[in-house]
Design a protein around this nucleic acid. Structure first.
Length: 750
RNA sequence: GCGAAAGUGGCGGAACUGGUAUACGCGCUAGACUUAGGAUCUAGUCCCGAGAAAUCGGGUUGGGGGUUCGAGUCCCCCCUUUCGCACCA
């Protein structure tokens, strides 16, 4: 991404403007790509930090705003009271500001969101129609969306004339709900504790919980803390009054931010009930208690009863076994009673796109005292980022201090208005950029829909596993939004997804093998390596190092293997002229050539580049041997060599193109078509066949490739070694695998 | 804790649907050419035992069990590692 936090940090730390820093990086990277011999169509180049690109982020935002898919609400941010600025999670180290060490607090700000939760069901269902995606990524997305089926149940709070709605996946345990727990952030919390003898203490506690970073609050083993509101609610199943508590283990933005606690059948509720001395009631009873165990005593229960037993103390459901049927019946019963209904909730939360930073797409809205929130009209796009900005890392967003940016005119009433200074999350840029590549200079629209429908979805998308959830989910979401706007005909942006592994290298600093990074001191300068051994060596070695989906350890020693291989290919060219006109082993070399085409083609298609390189090395070895021993004719050797160059070309374009020209070809290698192999040429007339006795390899015999089972058996039995091993045994049966082996199964003779 | 993936020589790794385990490369050993070589070429290199040698016998894909004529590959149990998620009601 051309936008992003690192650019802004560079500005703060080194005084370089984010724009200059970014374009400097782009320049360096393009030069590296060029040296590597990586071919891109640079006429399609885009940079998301240019107004030509980000104006369409703004356009997209406005369309989403019109349809209610973009909205504003209060949401907490990490706030450093000393720097007076918002921090990203990665800038918070153990609860403190990474720069000044001050304890970070949570602070509510009005922020912009995209309503991705509206698309939760479609995003989930769409995963089933993505056979080209790794199962692992799909599982991660499913868990992230986190669909849960259950019920909403209303609990009346007579003292307030209100009701609390809880979400539960286990409405069948309603009879066992002995108290309610609300998130401290719950809207009713303030009214519930109003007038409580220790109201002030509870309010202070609520403030503390709200202030603790969410990461900390969700940490495993962090203590459950709660306060009794002193109020009660009515359990609609039993008519009983049950206490209402507030506790930090209930999260405000999942379900309804309130739960019914069923300590007998939930571990967290049981732990909390024991801690606070709250009652426990069993609904499910183990149906075959161990002899002597008799009735379970709720008072002594130490482990919740999970997924076992029969409902006993819940009259309408008595006798039901734990399971989906019990849940279904419970929901029907709640609905009939008018105090509950079936409900599906998602773990997925709306996408917070606001960033209180300079280096991003300005969110195109204005705040007018008279008209309120006013979208910037399309004809005033793009809202451009000003260049002259001061970066201090303190006192919030630098953009907010640029008067010429903030002070604006309301497009509706012409009065004074204040411009929004939040910028967009960079994931907005990357959620549709693949479409912009197809018509990058189109000044009239976000992209050309006809072109997009012809070329997209992307056939093969490649990226690291770190994007498994956020980027890929956002891109899938925005694709559906664009589809619903009628801009594209498809809903899934990437038909096939491949996750490449990272390159790791030994670090002198830590003494361990780690992901390459500057801070770990284990980076390898591609320039130095290219200077020493050439771009082709680096390319071939990188492909050869291992399967691309796995992480691979860079070995400075092993690179020489690739270097030597290319050197051998180079020297072979000079030996071609010495090959004889006529030679005995032409057929063999020809077969190796066709086998190499087959293997390399197949390996490349399945992304097994390491085995493709191995197959090329083998062809190189057999040609090299033929040249050394003069066993193949010059014509065959030249053919084999040319094929080798063609197959090697994608991996080592520089050396092969050079050698190709020296061979006297006029057309460049890049313009030749991929070689094809002939099945017939792969076959041998006579083959070496393995003879097994009781599954153990005993000998190899040479037979006709087309030999019948009977002949194979005769050939096997003719072997002296086989006869030796058969001594004293009788053949019970013979299994022949055509072209491969014969297995003689014996039994001891009497 | 839940979920997923993976364990093969000294090392990176290969083995398409069950059919010659260890391809290819690194490293190592010996030799050749060399004033020299971190250049190049040749031969060897999973482990154990026997043999002067060619070779022969046995074993081996984290451990144990199973299916099969035959298992690195399929099934069950266990161990280890990596990754993802995690108070989600």
């Amino acid at each position: 991404d051309a936008f992003g936090l690192p650019a802004e940090n560079a500005a703060i730390q080194r005084g370089v403007h984010p724009r200059d820093w970014t374009f400097g990086n782009i320049k360096v990277m393009k030069e590296q790509f060029r040296r590597w011999g990586i071919l891109y169509d640079w006429s399609k180049e885009i940079a998301s930090c240019t107004p030509e690109y980000y104006r369409w982020n703004q356009w997209l935002f406005l369309r989403m705003l019109e349809r209610g898919l973009a909205y504003r609400k209060q949401a907490p941010v990490n706030w450093c009271p000393s720097c007076q600025t918002v921090l990203a999670n990665e800038q918070v180290v153990e609860g403190a500001c990474e720069r000044c060490g001050t304890a970070v607090v949570q602070r509510d700000l009005e922020q912009w969101f995209f309503r991705i939760t509206d698309y939760a069901e479609r995003l989930l269902a769409g995963l089933d129609a993505l056979p080209g995606w790794p199962e692992k990524v799909k599982t991660m997305q499913r868990n992230w969306i986190g669909r849960s089926e259950g019920a909403e149940i209303d609990f009346a709070v007579p003292a307030l004339g209100e009701r609390v709605t809880v979400f539960t996946t286990r409405p069948d345990t309603l009879h066992g709900a002995t108290f309610l727990v609300l998130a401290p952030e719950h809207p009713l919390a303030a009214r519930l504790i109003a007038g409580h003898p220790r109201q002030a203490e509870i309010e202070a506690w609520i403030a503390r919980v709200r202030n603790s970073p969410r990461i900390e609050r969700e940490e495993e083993g962090s203590a459950k803390e709660g306060r009794d509101t002193g109020r009660t609610a009515i359990n609609p199943a039993t008519g009983e009054e049950i206490p209402i508590w507030l506790a930090n283990y209930v999260l405000p933005d999942y379900g309804s931010g309130a739960i019914m606690a069923v300590p007998a059948h939930d571990g967290r509720d049981l732990a909390f009930a024991r801690q606070e001395g709250l009652p426990v009631r069993l609904v499910y009873h183990p149906d075959a208690p161990d002899a002597g165990a008799g009735e379970l005593d709720p008072a002594t229960l130490t482990e919740p009863i999970l997924h076992t037993g029969v409902i006993r103390d819940s009259p309408p459901l008595d006798g039901l076994r734990d399971g989906p049927e019990a849940v279904r019946r419970a929901i029907a019963w709640c609905e009939a009673g008018g105090f509950g209904r079936g409900k599906v909730v998602y773990r997925l939360r709306d996408w917070l796109i606001s960033r209180q930073r300079y280096w991003g797409t300005p969110i195109p809205v204005l705040y007018c005292e008279r008209c309120g929130v006013v979208p910037v009209p399309d004809d005033q796009l793009p809202v451009e980022l000003p260049y002259d900005v001061e970066f201090t890392g303190r006192e919030g967003n630098p953009l907010a201090r640029v008067a010429s940016f903030v002070e604006a005119t309301c497009p509706r009433c012409g009065g004074a208005a204040r411009r929004e200074t939040d910028t967009m999350d960079t994931f907005v840029d990357s959620s549709w950029y693949y479409l912009r590549f197809l018509s990058p200079r189109d000044a009239a629209r976000i992209f050309d829909g006809a072109v997009a429908n012809r070329w997209a979805p992307v056939d093969q998308y490649i990226g690291g596993i770190e994007h498994a959830i956020l980027h890929l989910l956002y891109a899938r979401f925005i694709c559906r939004v664009l589809h619903d706007f009628g801009l594209v005909a498809f809903e899934e942006p990437f038909a096939n997804l491949f996750n490449q592994g990272m390159i790791t290298r030994y670090s002198e600093l830590s003494g361990r093998v780690e992901k390459m990074s500057k801070s770990r001191g284990n980076t390898l300068s591609p320039d130095a390596l290219i200077d020493e051994m050439g771009a082709d060596t680096e390319r071939v070695y990188t492909l050869f190092i291992g399967p691309p989906e796995k992480e691979a350890e860079w070995s400075d020693e092993a690179v020489t293997g690739a270097y030597r291989f290319l050197g051998r290919v180079w020297r072979m060219a000079e030996k071609l002229a010495d090959a004889p006109a006529i030679a005995p082993a032409d057929a063999e070399l020809e077969r190796d050539r066709h086998a190499a085409i087959q293997r390399v083609t197949h390996s490349m298609e399945t992304f097994h580049f390491n085995t493709a390189v191995a197959a090329l090395m083998e062809l190189g070895n057999s040609l090299s041997r033929a040249l050394e021993e003069k066993t193949a004719s010059r014509l065959r050797c030249e053919e084999a060599f040319d094929t080798l160059l063609q197959l090697l070309h994608p991996m080592a374009p520089h050396v092969t193109e050079e050698l190709w020209e020296r061979r006297g070809h006029v057309e460049t290698l890049l313009d030749t078509s991929w070689p094809e192999y002939d099945e017939a040429k792969l076959r041998r007339a006579r083959i070496s066949l393995v003879v097994q006795i009781d599954g153990k390899l005993r000998d190899r015999v040479e037979v006709d490739a087309a030999a019948a089972d009977k002949e194979v058996r005769a050939a096997a039995l003719a072997s002296a070694k086989v006869q030796e091993h058969l001594a004293g045994k009788e053949i019970a049966k013979a299994v022949v695998v055509p072209g491969r082996l014969i297995n003689l199964v014996t039994r001891r003779s009497a």
